[in-house]
Design a protein around this nucleic acid. Structure first.
Lengths: 117, 117
DNA sequence: CTGTATCCTCATGGATACTG
DNA sequence: CAGTATCCATGAGGATACAG
């Protein structure tokens, strides 16, 4: 108990902005959306209820820049574009699952606690 | 591949605001800071470089409301206040560790990818 | 279908100073 | 030591409309 804090634990998070925008509103949900294979723009727009095309584009571009997602455009008519997780992006699935499981398991606890206050 | 999306996976995250403010700038760091035992206000203020007392207070109050943290004030002079994780708060440590590990392992990859673009 | 272009709101969180 | 009190900057994200 009360061992000194390990400074290294913060090394990865010390930047003004988080390396991965795990904290933002959509990135994690997008990763989950893409876990079973490539999805098209509208296939992402729909299940993420409430996201606007602008924000979806921004999020996907950011994830592309970070190498989490690849965008593939097919020269067809009507145009078809597919987004898929890269192998690197897939490495996020496991730690993210841990958080999702926690949330699913403890959501009711949280609701009770909040209702009581 | 390309199995249909499991809608339940989003059930826990469908609210306008996340149940737990995992996404915010300080909550996760505070959990990590408190993992080894109770800490005093200034013991949290210092290692979280850059946080202001106002924001620290706000964050701790929010975590208190959610039952993640307990505040204990000792009637001494000078005043002493300790913050500690509740058992419930401790359940967050494991999934959070998964994310921390991921970040630590892949930070360099991310840096390379960004430098290349 | 797959996006862009504008405009705008609003909450997070930072700066600074002060108090019991 | 452990906060409060103000004020304010910023940018993520939303609304809406339009385009290739």
């Amino acid at each position: 108990m009360t061992r000194p804090l390990d400074p290294d634990l913060f090394a990865a998070c010390d930047d003004a902005r988080p390396m991965i925008r795990i904290g933002d509103k959509w990135t994690t949900k997008l990763v989950v959306c893409l876990r079973d294979g490539p999805r098209r723009f509208n296939e992402l727009l729909r299940p993420l209820r409430g996201i606007t095309p602008k924000v979806l584009t921004e999020s996907l571009r950011a994830m592309e820049r970070d190498g989490l997602v690849v965008r593939t455009a097919y020269a067809e008519n009507p145009p078809r574009v597919e987004y898929a997780l890269t192998p690197f992006g897939r490495t996020l699935l496991e730690p993210l699952a841990a958080i999702c499981t926690w949330t699913a398991q403890h959501q009711s606890t949280l609701n009770e606690v909040r209702a009581a206050s």
